[in-house]
Amino acid sequence: MSEPDWTLIAEVELATAPDRIAAFAAAVGGTGMEAGDHVPATFAFTVLSRPEVLGALESVAADRSAVLVHQAQQFRYEHALEVGRPYQVAVDWRRNPDRDDRIVVRGRVRDAAGRHCQEFLADIVLFQNRRTDGAGS
């Protein structure tokens, strides 16, 4: 069985300005970021909340009268991201070939020279509330 095709959602810029990195680190329980520190390992995942990405994913869910529920994530790192440098992230998705109610979202992070830095995968459940009788609460 061949691997399903990926559908491109968007190519987005990942800004790593010191103030954004410090705010992210604080939000996830990290300490203050000092100048020259690396970007937290999971920071690139934040591109999934960008309107052009989230809107496309919500459209996939809406086609099934479902909502998106993040279930799991994986990361593969080749090069650490650095504070203050620009990166591009190609975000795409595909259906999970083993589960009709799941999709996989992938982000591939490249630096300004085009060097692959990291990749992340998110397993998303397309949750459908099947209750339609209004019974129970």
Rank of each mutant, 00 (worst) to 15 (best):
A66M: 02
W93R: 06
G84H: 10
E58F: 02
R95M: 06
V83K: 05
E58D: 15
H79Q: 15
V53S: 09
E34L: 09
Y87H: 04
A61K: 08
G30V: 02
R64Q: 12
G36H: 07
L81I: 00
D92W: 06
M33C: 11
E58S: 15
F45I: 07
A41W: 02
A41N: 11
A44Q: 05
T31S: 13
R99I: 00
T31D: 13
P40Y: 04
V53P: 01
L68N: 13
V83M: 14
A44R: 04
T46L: 04
D101W: 00
E82M: 06
F43A: 01
G29L: 09
N96C: 14
L54G: 00
H70V: 10
V69Y: 03
R64E: 10
V39F: 00
A41I: 09
L57R: 07
L48G: 01
A90S: 14
R95E: 12
V53H: 10
R94Q: 15
V53T: 11
M33W: 01
F75C: 03
R94C: 12
V28T: 15
A80C: 01
A72D: 13
A66Q: 03
A56P: 05
V47Q: 08
S59A: 15
T46G: 03
P40A: 05
N96S: 15
A72K: 10
P51G: 07
D98F: 11
L68R: 06
L68C: 08
G55Q: 11
D92T: 09
R95S: 08
A62Q: 14
D100L: 04
R50Y: 15
